[in-house]
């Protein structure tokens, strides 16, 4: 992966004002804190974390749905933050796409499937109606659906088939980068594998880059090249897949991997991690994981650990590795 990254995220911050402080006051919720990561062409970066980790917000920032409150994001060499935001987004929009978690909400129920797939083309302008129809049939075939599906409405398809339609729409403009936000977590296990395989095949065929957001570590292992672990808005570890799963370094990554149930009735699991993800309205000082960490040290309660290189290609934010 020596190639120049197509996605560069530097010190990304995101904060939302929310009502819900003491006395119904508006308070600032720091959803993301100083994220840094790159994605190379043809690479899949897995972004894992539990609810409230901010993984979905990060994905939405990368396709321009939210404007971050700090830091910079460069896509295909164009900045989509700060003063160049509008110009940058206009330049890269056709190369960005998004695949949603819930295939039932991702398609307009009143539009024919063909029109939904063709929508990005129609918005970008260009191509005649007949050209678009040809392209739609080609896309349907690409994702393993019959060509005559275009005339039907979303309710006539199963969940897995709808997810294929969403993927077809994402491919309509030949994008370079797709954010997949929990694309298989709403699907049945036997259908999940079909979609994961389809995404991998399409990546091979078109050299796509993915940000693959998921809470399911096993699915991420199947598709990602590198994995970043988020906890309460901060990246705690980034590593190539084999290293992360084979030798997790951050205590949270270890606990997370240990908590996943395995299809092995004889497995003896380690002690269960106690506690819950802290509120982002009043995050604990220092390392945000220190309230649950089995290796907590005094300085964890005061100093925020920086993301440091431990071995080439691996980054961990933990005082154990300082």
């Amino acid at each position: 992966m020596a190639a120049e990254p197509i996605i560069e995220v530097r010190d990304l911050d995101m904060a939302f004002p929310v009502r819900g402080g003491p006395g119904g006051k508006t308070v600032i919720q720091q959803v993301l804190h100083k994220l840094n990561f790159d994605i190379a062409p043809g690479e899949t970066l897995g972004l894992v974390g539990e609810s409230g980790s901010g993984k979905s917000t990060a994905g939405r920032i990368l396709v321009g749905l939210y404007e971050p409150t700090g830091g910079s994001v460069k896509l295909f060499g164009q900045s989509i933050t700060g003063a160049q935001r509008q110009h940058g987004l206009a330049a890269v929009r056709s190369r960005l796409q998004f695949v949603f978690q819930d295939p039932h909400a991702a398609l307009n129920p009143r539009m024919r499937v063909g029109d939904s797939i063709a929508e990005p083309i129609a918005i970008a302008g260009g191509r005649t109606r007949r050209d678009r129809a040809d392209r739609v049939r080609e896309l349907l075939e690409m994702v393993g659906l019959p060509r005559d599906g275009a005339e039907r409405f979303p309710h006539e398809f199963s969940g897995g088939q709808r997810q294929r339609i969403v993927i077809a729409r994402a491919l309509a403009l030949q994008p370079g980068f797709i954010v997949c936000d929990e694309p298989v977590s709403a699907l049945d296990v036997s259908i999940q594998a079909q979609i994961v395989n389809l995404l991998m095949d399409l990546q091979q065929k078109f050299g796509l880059s993915y940000l693959f957001i998921a809470h399911d570590l096993a699915v991420v292992r199947a598709i990602a090249h590198r994995v970043a672990v988020l906890y309460a808005g901060s990246i705690v570890e980034v590593a190539p897949k084999d290293e992360l799963y084979g030798d997790p370094q951050h205590p949270y990554t270890r606990a997370l991997l240990d908590a996943v149930p395995r299809a092995d009735p004889d497995r003896v699991r380690g002690p269960v991690l106690g506690g819950e993800v802290p509120s982002l309205l009043a995050p604990p000082p220092g390392c945000r994981f220190h309230t649950r960490c089995p290796h907590v040290m005094p300085r964890c309660r005061t100093d925020i650990p920086a993301l440091r290189v431990t071995t080439p290609g691996r980054h961990v934010a933990c005082h154990l590795y300082a």
Binding site: Q97, F100, A105
Partner: peptide, 26 residues
């Protein structure tokens, strides 16, 4: 706030398109 409206936004759809293609019919 539904995903298909977000999808149109990501693709750069105009307000008019979002209102009359997506929000109003639904």
């Amino acid at each position: 706030e539904l995903d298909y409206v977000q999808a149109a936004r990501i693709a750069g759809a105009s307000n008019a398109r979002i209102m009359f293609h997506h929000i109003l019919p639904n």
